[in-house]
């Protein structure tokens, strides 16, 4: 009996190691989607002193997670995952259109669509065993959360870890942007990431169950900053 349990445990560990490896690779800052070049309107917010220290950056990111793009992305990712898991291409096409239509500004559209296409292209090239992804995601640019959600489903990565990892990557990238812009110390940046851990976990769980009717943001200030960023005189970031 103990031997069977040990075998079962080993198989579970191997399976978990396989998807964990891919999840970590796909949402790593090293994955070539260009995430480092997008600030989600933060560059203008810092310019206008709406964000200027660790506390205000953390508040800003908390709002984006709970009320803005983080929440929207998590819901879209969850629905893309569910559709891909069922092989439901028409629903994925609809989600792709929805992800594009929801982009509130030109630069936020660029941010999600460019990253989405880069993710799809790189993932298909590096993991050719995921050819099902190419069938499910048609040739037009998918929004980033759609691409990640669909890939996670095709690779049999559990949904909740995929959502948490997505939101962590989202927060970590914008924290890094804030560290460079304000500037902040690296340790302060990590304190922000740590403090937002429960928010990411909460929003991932909520997204898993949220219907598409729940889509909606309250971060109009982020929209405004993103729009003003289009004409910001000195820019490090594409959004």
């Amino acid at each position: 009996m103990p031997r069977i349990i040990m075998v079962a445990t080993t198989m579970t560990t191997e399976a978990a190691a396989a998807w964990l490896y891919r999840l970590m690779a796909w949402l790593s800052p090293a994955y070539p989607v260009g995430a480092f070049s997008y600030s989600h309107g933060l560059e203008w917010a810092v310019e206008q002193r709406l964000v200027g220290d660790r506390s205000s950056l953390e508040d800003w990111l908390d709002d984006v997670l709970r009320h803005g793009g983080g929440r929207i992305d998590a819901i879209l990712c969850a629905h893309a995952y569910a559709a891909a898991a069922l092989g439901d291409r028409p629903t994925l096409v609809g989600l792709r259109d929805l992800g594009e239509a929801l982009a509130p500004t030109r630069e936020l559209a660029l941010e999600t669509l460019s990253q989405g296409e880069a993710f799809r292209t790189t993932t298909l090239a590096a993991w050719p065993d995921l050819e099902r992804l190419a069938e499910l995601l048609p040739d037009r640019l998918p929004a980033y959360p759609i691409a990640v959600g669909a890939a996670a489903a095709v690779a049999a990565i559990p949904m909740l870890p995929a959502l948490e990892a997505y939101l962590h990557a989202f927060v970590a990238n914008l924290t890094s942007a804030g560290v460079r812009l304000i500037p902040l110390g690296q340790t302060d940046g990590q304190r922000i990431v740590a403090n937002l851990e429960p928010v990411c976990v909460e929003m991932a769980e909520a997204a898993r169950l949220a219907p598409l009717d729940d889509l909606g943001t309250a971060t109009l200030m982020v929209d405004w900053c993103s729009m003003r960023h289009e004409t910001q005189y000195t820019r490090l970031f594409r959004s």
């Binding site: 929805l98 239509a101 909606g216 309250a218 109009l220």
Partner: peptide
């Protein structure tokens, strides 16, 4: 029936008014 744009807001009054909230204390949008 092609979806061209979708603009959705969902905001609670407390968040709307909160100086540190998503609208930074703006009273009108």
């Amino acid at each position: 029936e092609d979806l061209l744009m979708l603009d959705c807001w969902r905001v609670d009054g407390q968040d709307f008014a909160d100086q540190d909230g998503p609208l930074h204390g703006q009273g009108g949008v």
